Simulated scan of single mutants.
Amino acid sequence: MKLNKIITRGAFAIAAASTLAVMPVTAQAKDWRGWNIHVEDYPVSHGMEAFMEEVTEKTGGEIKGKVFHAGVLGSQPDAIEQLRLGIMDFGVFSLGPMGQAVPATNVVSLPFVFKSVPQMYELMDGEPGAALGEALEEKGIVPLGYYDAGARSFYNSVKPINTPEDVQGMKVRVMNNDLFVGMIESMGGNATPMAFAEVYQSIKTGVVDGAENNPPSYESTSHFEVAKYYSLTQHLIIPECLCMSKKTFDGLTPEQQEIVKTAGKNSTDLQRKLWGEREAASMKIIMDGGVEVNEIADKSAFQEAMVPVYEKYLAANPEMTDLVNLFRNAD
């Protein structure tokens, strides 16, 4: 009798241990860590904090975490790798550099692939964004929302840019990327890759005629003081991704996963609103500073000028053809 009790107890213990082994490891096991390159007082940072607060509140404190701002947890490439391994739980990453880990995301770095910021929202929230999401998940990353990182436009000290021909002969600083060099060269300009910290003095002394960036960057660096023409080409609209580790996500219960998805959407809506406010404030400072700002309603001529850039990219990456067309042919 006693032996039977021991056997029964032993069998129960083994069954219980087996049940625990197959149960998902929930977020109760540890606090989440969130990676962020931006300073604490920034639209992205506020969006991330709101995301974590909502997840903690809606899970009744079962999931807690902290956002580490200003890149204190390392560089973006390192953070992406940690995310894929489940060492990092979530973060916001530019889809530009993300291309090293997930090649499909390079598509959004193609110039003029988006016609406007509202169109970027629509596409990233729709089928094209879902296609990128599948590519991200294959690499161990779950996208929860696509943040607004602004639209890059040309500024210079010479003249307004209204057509691609206006760039001809102009010396333009660009980021060190073949796509962006090709973008300037396709319009007859002279692309000059250089460190961002050197741009102000280079424009002031005539080493370059201008550069390109979003309004908050153009304003906060005081580049508008030496480059008084700002042309809203919006040639690069590269979103940032609120992403989490697939390992962390898969360890959640279905109820927790739904909470996380909803919090991600709410966070994205908030961040986009805050970015719009920040951008409007920068534009006011720019215009009050005497900058001549010109909008370009029809960007079709610029898009046509990019044909060689796209041909070169697709020749090197033929597997991306369908995805590029999904973005490029959208209304």
Rank of each mutant, 00 (worst) to 15 (best):
N190M: 14
A191W: 07
P193Y: 08
E198F: 06
V199E: 03
Y200H: 14
Q201H: 08
S202N: 10
S202I: 02
I203G: 05
K204H: 07
G206C: 08
G206I: 07
V207G: 05
V207R: 14
V208T: 09
D209A: 09
D209F: 00
D209N: 13
G210K: 03
G210Q: 04
A211M: 07
N214R: 14
P215R: 11
P215F: 07
S217E: 14
Y218V: 03
Y218P: 08
E219H: 14
S220F: 10
S222K: 15
S222N: 15
S222P: 05
H223F: 14
E225G: 01
V226K: 10
A227L: 10
K228M: 01
K228T: 02
K228G: 04
Y229Q: 01
Y229H: 07
S231D: 05
S231W: 05
S231H: 05
L232D: 02
L232W: 04
L232G: 05
T233V: 01
Q234D: 15
I237H: 01
I237K: 00
E240W: 15
C241F: 02
C243P: 06
S245P: 03
K246L: 10
K246E: 12
D250Y: 01
L252A: 02
P254D: 10
E255M: 08
Q256M: 12
Q256K: 07
Q257C: 10
V260D: 03
K261F: 00
K261C: 02
G264M: 02
S267T: 05
T268Y: 06
T268E: 00
L270F: 10
G276V: 01
G276A: 00
G276R: 01
R278E: 13
E279A: 08
A280H: 09
A280E: 12
K284E: 11
K284N: 04
K284Y: 09
I285D: 01
I285Q: 11
I286N: 06
M287S: 14
M287H: 13
D288Y: 09
G289W: 09
V291S: 03
E292D: 10
N294K: 13
E295Q: 14
E295G: 13
E295V: 13
E295M: 14
I296V: 09
D298S: 02
S300K: 13
S300Y: 09
F302S: 00
Q303V: 13
Q303D: 06
E304I: 07
P308Q: 09
V309C: 02
E311Y: 00
Y313G: 01
A315M: 03
A315S: 13
N317A: 01
P318L: 03
M320R: 08
D322R: 02
D322W: 03
V324D: 06
L326S: 12
F327C: 04
R328W: 11
R328M: 12
A330T: 02
A330D: 06
